[in-house]
Nucleic acid binder design. Sequence first.
DNA 1: GTGAAAGCGCTAACAA
DNA 2: TTGTTAGCGCTTTCAC
Lengths: 332, 332
Amino acid sequence: MATLATVAAAAGVSRQTVSNALNSPELLRPDTLERVQRAIERLGYTPNRAARNLRTRTSHLVGLRLEPAVEGSASGLMDRFLHSLVESTREAGLHVLLFTPEDVNNPLDGYDALLRSAAVDAFVVTDTYRGNPQAAWLEARQVPFVAFGRPWEDPQACFPWVDVDGRAGVRLAVDHLADKGHERIAWVGWQKSSYIGEDRRNGWLDRMHERELPTTRLSARGEDTIEFGRRAAHALLEGEHPTAFVCVSDTVAMGVLQALVDLGRRAAADDVAVVGFDDSLAAQVTGLTSVRQPLEEIAVQIVRLLEDRLAMRTSDEQNIILTPELRVRDTS
Amino acid sequence: MATLATVAAAAGVSRQTVSNALNSPELLRPDTLERVQRAIERLGYTPNRAARNLRTRTSHLVGLRLEPAVEGSASGLMDRFLHSLVESTREAGLHVLLFTPEDVNNPLDGYDALLRSAAVDAFVVTDTYRGNPQAAWLEARQVPFVAFGRPWEDPQACFPWVDVDGRAGVRLAVDHLADKGHERIAWVGWQKSSYIGEDRRNGWLDRMHERELPTTRLSARGEDTIEFGRRAAHALLEGEHPTAFVCVSDTVAMGVLQALVDLGRRAAADDVAVVGFDDSLAAQVTGLTSVRQPLEEIAVQIVRLLEDRLAMRTSDEQNIILTPELRVRDTS
DNA sequence: GTGAAAGCGCTAACAA
DNA sequence: TTGTTAGCGCTTTCAC
């Protein structure tokens, strides 16, 4: 395997000159540079990562803790997000290193070991929906990181994060349905304890009030399960006869769709309309209209903030909220 | 940050002794070992990865090239697989490093750079459905790797791989349906050019013949899209009136389900039964019976083979075929 | 603009 | 059983 020394010998220069050709090419005289570059090319030389890491005390690796996917939940956002993130990190000269905790219930598990062994330079923190002790922990240790998800329980918390404006997403959904003439638009959401759930629900409330549409007894709250969506839809349909449903998630929306099948009705623009949230594969495949998170853009912004942080630049705006878009399909 | 030297000084031993305490504890006298371990504990010492990597010429990193997820396709297996893989690698003291190619159409892109920079020790190759030039390329360079997916186009190819017995999976589906009394069981599959598609289809053929059930004009082939599934189901229902469909994928199965809705019929055990393949989130969420790939076990076996390979052990059996199971739900 | 020297933190080989 | 020496491949510093 070629090393700096090999290349230097081949090009008839010293090792440092080769190193400079790679890291500060502007220091070399053009002809020397080209001679070195040809030698590098010819020998297929690539700098050894371990040596470079040891010397520079960086790894160009970003850690990401993979949380267990929930079976039976429609979303599966991680796949799309991961791909975008790996793509963005590549363009920034970084790589993504995955890890899982030994103890899933300990939100800090796994971070410490990677950090102490200097295996990663930074983290991307994604599991912020349950609160983010990781963020506080990392912040306290001055570890560079960017969160996907904002610190709901502590809005004052000062660290870089990127999040989606769920509220705006649901507003889009309500507008879409109201524009189609729907007036009795129901909300099927998560429990009050969920910050994200309440944020999305507020989008529904906002717009319904702005458009002077009724909301009384048109809202249901429960778990993120199909079964809950189904039960909620049955109850709502029996009571206030909504003509449309906006759901906090695709999973819940799938339950609503099932309820309509139970009743021999169709989820469609001309009967009962249904809108989900996440634009999961299940939504794409069943023709469910859904709010789509801009995961690609989120990844780009996360990496941008990460680069700022790694370069010790303080970004002017280190909290970014992106607006989702509505993917209209058969069910609305 | 604590180093070997720090710990050695704290414990009153030499650096090498600390190193041995970590890597060959059996060499130390119990009391020395304990003294060193206490110092390690007290100082919160973890060996520096870069230094260790440089010295041992290993990184304990496994590269995985992330292929773009196909929008509109139901499967989304990668999420589940990745999680299992990361879990298994953790237990083996390895980590997963993700990368994407700059040029998606070049199946080799990305491997070379990681290899030459000694950034990874090995690869897990997953995109074998299009043939596997990567495998040949890696094999030629004696790079340790294990493939998820067998070398269909070159069964003689000699490298470690783990795959799922799609044929057996479909046999399970046919058995299940035939046991329920179905006789006219249709196949909706991929084009003849797909090895995986043909393998699965053979499972259908096998069992149908063994049970002396008809197959003539009960088979359709096409792309992996919902639209194809829908069209195929319409055509088959008009012609040979099948009472059940076995599909090569959940995506296609979703199309079949839509066709049934079009015709005002129900996908259910007592009307037209439908079985998919992959046990995607879409299947879980729509109640589609589906063949589930044992991704967790696949990951375990891949890591086992990887460890063998990295330890230069030649495994007795380096090709492993695992049998999927049937997840029975509402549609059958 | 180029080269020589030093050392990042670790482990393999050997000496004590 | 423990310690000493050397060096993995690179970059940083400083002299030329």
